[in-house]
Amino acid sequence: MLLELRIENLLLIDRAELRPGPGLNAITGETGAGKTVLAHALDLLLGGKPRAGIVRPGASEAYVEGVFDLPEGLLAREELTDLRERLGEVEGEVVLARRVSSEGRTRAYIQGRSATVGDLRELGGRLLSFFGQHEHRRLTVASVQLDLLDGFCGPEHLALRGQVGATHARVRALQGEVEEIRARAGTRERDLDLLRFEIEEIAALDPSEEEESALLTERERLRRVDGLRAAAAAGGNAIAPHEPDPAGGAGAGVSALLAEAERAG
């Protein structure tokens, strides 16, 4: 339960304090009176992301602090073990705070100690229930209906549901591993079929060492095909030049062609 809320430099509010009384409290006012600012302040304490321009113009930072009644045994929950060890003994009340700089950087505090936004979200979500004007629409969602029903059945039922959920997740993970193994086995069979086919093709060709030597020679010749073409063009130009060649004439071109032919085998 919220006992006290302090706001500084948040949107249009310079400084404000709110102390709800016991029972139902209703905050009313015309448009622009600041009701939405209170909602933004509570959202920050619950670990929400600050929107752009949330710091009051001219201020260096905004500050929100909330004092909450701490239910007995809340910090004893397993999911809050790390936070409990960092905070030490906390009884009666707990203070959550958040600073937001004008550049958008934020810092979180619990009981005056530095904390993370995740800590605010974990603890604040258990101290305060925050509902919007369209929250009732969640009641039409099947998963929400199941959560409400399971919660109504008590903690023993919730513990059993958690065990069933963990077991179901484990079964799904094992099923995924089995499917992956089967997929790998199928790939292995396809690879083996391809290898058998290739071996049969090679056996049917029955290649010999002479064929291998001939193929290697042909490969070397083809590798030099560009050189042969260039030498042939030079030889043709030397035999029937478009312009006189003072560097050697036909003899030089024919010699180059013969040398390239010898290299090509």
Rank of each mutant, 00 (worst) to 15 (best):
C153K: 09
G92L: 09
T106F: 01
E61I: 04
G88P: 12
G186E: 15
T81D: 15
G21F: 09
E122G: 00
T81Y: 12
R184L: 14
R98C: 02
A142F: 14
E93Q: 15
A62D: 09
P241M: 12
R196H: 04
A62G: 12
L128R: 04
V95C: 08
V178W: 13
G265V: 12
A204V: 01
R190H: 09
T36G: 08
E177S: 10
S102D: 11
L222V: 06
D206K: 12
G73I: 03
A108E: 02
A166Y: 10
A169M: 04
D43S: 01
D191M: 13
G47P: 02
E17I: 10
R196K: 10
N237I: 07
Q133T: 07
D69G: 14
S102N: 06
E260V: 14
E189F: 07
T81E: 15
R190T: 09
E209S: 07
R126E: 05
E200K: 04
V171T: 08
R15F: 01
A214F: 03
G112L: 09
M1C: 02
A185S: 10
E61A: 13
A264E: 06
G176E: 15
G58V: 01
C153D: 10
L158G: 00
P244Y: 09
E220F: 11
A250G: 11
S213Q: 11
G251T: 15
D226L: 02
G48F: 01
N237Q: 14
T106G: 01
M1T: 07
S114K: 02
A234H: 11
Y109K: 04
L120Q: 11
A203I: 05
G118Q: 12
R98H: 03
L80N: 01
R105L: 10
L195K: 07
T31S: 11
G154H: 10
L216E: 09
A76E: 15
E198Y: 05
Q133M: 06
R223G: 08
A240K: 12
L45T: 01
V254L: 15
P71F: 06
L46G: 00
Y63R: 08
V100E: 05
M1R: 02
L160S: 08
T167S: 14
V67A: 08
K35V: 07
A230P: 03
F131T: 04
M1S: 11
E4G: 00
